[in-house]
Design a binder for these strands. Structure first.
Lengths: 146, 146
DNA sequence: ACTGTAATTGAAACTCATTCTCATTTAGAA
DNA sequence: TTCTAAATGAGAATGAGTTTCAATTACAGT
């Protein structure tokens, strides 16, 4: 994990008058230990397993804090829990979600982005965020089915 | 409300060996009484107000039944509850959601649809459903803000 | 029309993800 | 080192939705 990122996080805490606590640092590191999607409970249980337990409430609170400060973003993949991902390196992307095996494929597409902007203009709408999920069957599941 | 639709619903119940109960018919009519989005509790409370009370459980169960049989579809507008809409006349569409006033604008766009299919082909993915939400500010809220 | 029975219903208990409460602990400014 | 507001953990509370189960009811077969 990038050293400067942790420093940036500490700066953010500092400049916002928030305390730099062990719990927050541990959660931050956990969140940046992989580039996969995760939900709050995954972080919670991973940390328990690694004997770095923090309370569930603190996990939720810290994830909110990370989202608000741009270190993490919420991703909607149609699940019942909120999913997150760290914002390291990855630009905005959309998801293909296999409804059979749960596989998630990420993609991004300039044509769609552009077209969205056109549509927003047409409706006098100022876009801040968007979310596109395509549900269906991945190649393996489709083959498996027949 | 289209008479034939109610008949179609009754047929569906019949051919699937399900009973044609007052609760189901009332919910069906309520769902088709407007073309707006709604969530389960809205239906539940509207029906109480109109002295056509059915239990919450029955509302949820019947909405599932209607979704499974294509009379209603689930719509995702980024809310914490599941939203629904009846499938009368309206083709598939996407949503612009104003994060300030909650206004929802519907749109549909051939270019985006086409591009989505291209992307799916590229990934050997067979799409069955998709969901695009653009969050932002509607014209009124944008003007109000400055 | 009457019966029998499997489907349906309502009420309340339950689940699951998340948020809140509040007593205790702690980071970090003075 | 001291003080205090911020943060934490444990568990209660919440909200949306689902399940359970005893009581009711639609309707196929007589």
């Amino acid at each position: 994990m990038d050293k400067t990122l942790l420093e940036k996080f500490k700066d953010t805490l500092h400049t916002n008058g928030m305390k730099c606590t062990p719990a927050r640092l541990l959660i931050f590191k956990e969140v940046y230990s992989s580039s996969e999607h995760f939900d709050a409970d995954e972080i919670y249980f991973r940390m328990r397993r690694e004997k770095k337990a923090v309370s569930r409430a603190t996990v939720y609170r810290t994830l909110d804090l990370l989202v608000e400060n741009g270190f993490v973003s919420r991703v909607n993949v149609g699940a019942s829990q909120v999913h997150f991902e760290n914002t390291l390196a990855q630009e905005h992307h959309e998801h293909l979600v296999c409804t059979q095996c749960g596989k998630i494929i990420e993609f991004s597409d300039k044509v769609i982005e552009k077209q969205q902007n056109l549509i927003c203009e047409e409706h006098d709408f100022f876009p801040t965020k968007h979310n596109l999920i395509i549900f269906g069957l991945c190649d393996k599941c489709r083959k498996r089915n027949n």
